[in-house]
Design a binder for these strands. Sequence first.
RNA 1: GCCGGGGUGUGGUAGAGGUAUCCCUUGGGACUGUGGAUCCCAAGACCUGGGUUCAAAUCCCAGCCCCGGCCCCA
Length: 427
Amino acid sequence: MRIERARGTRDFLPAEMLKRRIMEAKMRDIAEKWGYEEIRTPTFELAELFTLKSGEEILKNMYEFKDKGGRHLALRPELTAPVIRMYVNELKMAPKPVKVYYFGNCFRYEEPQRARYREFWQFGAEIIGSDSPEAQAEIIALAFYCLKSLGIKAELYVGHVGLIREVLQAANMEEAEINKVMNLIDKGEREAVVEFMGGIGTERELIDDLISLVDLKGKDALNEARALKIIASNNDALKELEMLLKIIDYYDIVYTLNLGIARGLDYYTGMVFEIYKADGKLGAQNQVCGGGSYRLAALFGGADTPSTGFAFGIDRLAEIFPLETDDLKRKEVVVVPIKEKNRNPDVIKEAIKIASELREFFPTHMDVMSRSLSAQLSYANAINASFAVFVGKKEVKEGKVTLRNLDTGVQEKMSVEECVERIRNQV
RNA sequence: GCCGGGGUGUGGUAGAGGUAUCCCUUGGGACUGUGGAUCCCAAGACCUGGGUUCAAAUCCCAGCCCCGGCCCCA
């Protein structure tokens, strides 16, 4: 009986892993150069960590279970909450800002489709201890430069949920109601917003102002927001956003302002941003990155700590990552012991010694199937190796090897040292 | 959760009621150290379960899975 993969999960074959390692290395390099340090949190957590503040949509899709001790656990549906939990548990005395990055798999029970899986991978970074415009801009810039190093072009949208939340709070709405409205705004359901707010007795004028606020997009959005009477011109969120945009410009980053971005995670409090790949290559799942400022630490038993961060969907990036096939081709060497009929142990001994020397520099294979010379060459050809190194009776006697370039078919007898040099020069 | 389109060896395919085709692949053998070839042998498939039929890969139903879309997210 054949066992299938669980729905929504994937096996990564060598070629895919190689590609992902290359991508990971590029992103890790950027994060390190910006002074961030890598961390890793557990694959599962107490379910409570996520039920506290993650938002309705996430909870609906969570893999929850009880362990044998009766603990209520969940596979992590996202990584921000675990990272902040780690900060509160282990890092709260570290000098601020704490700057960390991470790669990790997440789990959500959703219908699999293009670029959406039940187990998916995120790369994220957080600045813990600040949600200043400088921190917000740095996080956006970091995300931007990661994409740049991957050679991926995508569109950046920046918004600010603080602006909208303040309007709603001023209207004396309760937190649950506010979250509900934010959720509807995020979905773009304007009528539902009007209906819901009307239903709880909000004034018509305020509702209209809110709708026009979230519909603001582009360069003049800020001035227009100011013109709307519901936002005071000395409004903190507005001033913060203005400063942020100024700094983003200093980073030379192209963006579009969109006050309608509300984000599905309830914990965002200030700036929010999303990055889309809008050329259709990702189908309906074109968001590759999301992030913003939030306050979660207090919720997990720490001091109230402003934080800012983002997360990339690595699987989506992997689908659009432009990779030359040359990048994927490793230069490999196959050591071919020519054992003849009697499995000459001298030849095997010498071949092992030579393979060990080559392994200092190159991925090196050696026959483990007792194959004939032609069968070994055939294998070398099948795995697309670049060189074969023959070790036979004659070579052993002369203390040399025969190096064969498998692309050109040219071969020559030489010392092991020279052989290493030759291969290095052609790699 | 909802809506489309699909499932034949590892992959690609033919078969549209009657012994499942071909290519690639994989393993073995022949071949005295270049045969990365050639020849021979072998392995390996009708998604699962029901139903119709003398007979089902083929027709019907359900499920599972895959691909895509809605919603939401990364």
